[in-house]
Design a protein around this nucleic acid. Structure first.
Lengths: 237, 237
DNA sequence: CCGCATCCGTTTCGATACTG
DNA sequence: CAGTATCGAAACGGATGCGG
C-alpha cells in the first residue's frame, strides 16, 4: 500500500509520494540538524501520534531517506538519521522554507518556537554568494528560553549558526520581526526606529543586512484578501 | 478548520500547511505552465475526485496562490491561474522535482506520461548558468502520441521547450532513458551504444549533454535496498 | 524510560451520482 | 462545464498498554 500514490511519470509526483504526506516533511526537517530518537521527535512534533510517527519512520526507511542506528550499551537507544539521499532533500526544503518564510510575517498565538526552525528559515533566506564580512546576533524571545542566532557574512556566503562570538551588535526582537528583517520586509533603518526592538552595540552595523539575505522572488501575501485580477490575458492551451 | 495544521513558528511548516496535502502540489504543477479549467485539471490528475479538487482549489484561492477568472462570452468558462505568490513556488517545485527525478530511473507500468511533466523534470535538472550553445531534441515514446522536447544550451543557461527548430541530433528513447541522460546516470558514450535508443543526426552532438544539465547533489537510491551505514559518528545534541 | 501496537472517535479521501 | 451531495473506506489524533 501507499508506495504508488500518483500513477504519473513525473519527478514532482515521485517526490510528493515520499514527502507529500502529513508530518513527513517535518520529520525530515527535524533530522536535518542531527539524528534524533523516537521520543525526541514526538516531543518536537506536538500533535503527531506515536503510531503515525512509527509508520512514517518505517516508510522513510524503506524509501531510503533515513536509517536507524542502535547505539550500544550503556546508552542502548535507537536514533534515526538521514541517509545521503535524505540529505539530498535539503535544497528542496530550503526552497520551500524560503517561500514559507513570508507566511511567518503574520504570527499566530499558541505556536511553538524552536531555535532550529528559526535557523532553517534564516538559512533559507541567506545569501549564498559572497556577502559583507560582518557578524551580528539575534536574540529571539521564545516561550521560556531565549534563542540566540549568529549571522555571519563572508566570502562563502552568509552563515547562520548558533555559535556565539564577537559581534558588532545584538538585536533582541520577536520572531516575526527577525523574519521581516531577513526577508527584506523591514528595513534596517526602520528597525532602528522600532521601539519593540532592543539593539545592543553599534546600530549602524545593521545596515548591511539587506546584503546578507536575498529576498523572496515574489511579493508577500495577506491571507483572506482577494485582489481581483483585472488583467485580460486569455491564455489557453 | 484546516488553516493551521502545524502549530509551529516554522517557515517549512507554513509551506507544508498550504501545499502539503494530497494533490495540492500537483495542482500547482499543472497551473505552472498555463491556466486551466476545472475539467482540464480533472483529466490531467486522474484519481482526483471532483469534490477534493473543488476543496483544494478553494483552499488555494483563499491562501492566495491561485485566482479564478471567468472568461466572458462566447467562451464563458472559468479558468484557474497562479497568482504571483503561487508562481513564487516554482523554485521550490523545481528543487523537489530535481530530487524526485532520480526516482524516475526505476519506471513503473501503467503510469501516465505528459510532455509538461517531462519538461518540468528536465528544467529541474537544467544547468542555470551558461552552457554550450548546442541544440538537440528528444522524442519520447508516450502511450499514444510521442512527446517532443527541445534542449538548447546558451549563455543564459539550458532551456527546455517544446518549440521545434534546427537541431544537430534527435534522440528517440523511452522516458527513463531521457531522465538517465539528464541526471548524468547514463553517459552519452553509453547512450550511443544503447540499442534501445535511436539517434538521428550527428551522434557526437550528444557529447556536451553533461554540460547542459547539473547532476543531483546526492547519489540515487534503489528502493527496498538497505545499505548499512557503517559510519560511527555519534552526533547528539 | 523507550519504542512501538492496539483501540476508538473524528476527520479526510475516493468513487459515484446528481444539479445549476 | 463546474461543481455539490452522499457514502463507505481509509487515515488521523489521543489514550492506553506492553515488552525490552
Amino acid at each position: 500500500m501507499g508506495g504508488t500514490r500518483y500513477p504519473q511519470f513525473c519527478a514532482l509526483a515521485r517526490a510528493a509520494e515520499v514527502v507529500g504526506e502529513r508530518w513527513t516533511l517535518l520529520i525530515v526537517r527535524e533530522l536535518l540538524a542531527t539524528p534524533r530518537r523516537f521520543a525526541d521527535l514526538r516531543e518536537r512534533l506536538q500533535g503527531l501520534s506515536p503510531s503515525v510517527l512509527a509508520e512514517r519512520l518505517a516508510r522513510l526507511e524503506t524509501a531510503g531517506l533515513i536509517a536507524r542506528r542502535h547505539l550500544e550499551a550503556p546508552t542502548a537507544i535507537t536514533v534515526y538519521e538521514l541517509t545521503a539521499a535524505g540529505r539530498g532533500l535539503e535544497p528542496a526544503l530550503l526552497a520551500l522554507a524560503r517561500w514559507g518564510a513570508q507566511r511567518l510575517l503574520s504570527p499566530r498565538s499558541r505556536e511553538r518556537l524552536d531555535g532550529e526552525w528559526l535557523r532553517l528559515a534564516l538559512r533559507a533566506c541567506a545569501r549564498p554568494a559572497a556577502s559583507p564580512a560582518v557578524a551580528l546576533q539575534f536574540r529571539v524571545r521564545a516561550h521560556r528560553t531565549d534563542v540566540l542566532l549568529r549571522i555571519e557574512g563572508g566570502p562563502h556566503g552568509t552563515q547562520v549558526t548558533d555559535a556565539l562570538g564577537p559581534t558588532a551588535v545584538t538585536v533582541s526582537a520577536d520572531p516575526a520581526t527577525v523574519i521581516a528583517l531577513a526577508t527584506g520586509r523591514l528595513a534596517p533603518s526602520a528597525a532602528r526606529r522600532d521601539r519593540t526592538i532592543r539593539i545592543e552595540g553599534d546600530p549602524t552595523a545593521l545596515d548591511p543586512l539587506p546584503a546578507l539575505f536575498h529576498f523572496p522572488d515574489e511579493l508577500p501575501h495577506s491571507p483572506a484578501r482577494h485582489d481581483p485580477i483585472t488583467e485580460s490575458r486569455s491564455n489557453t492551451t
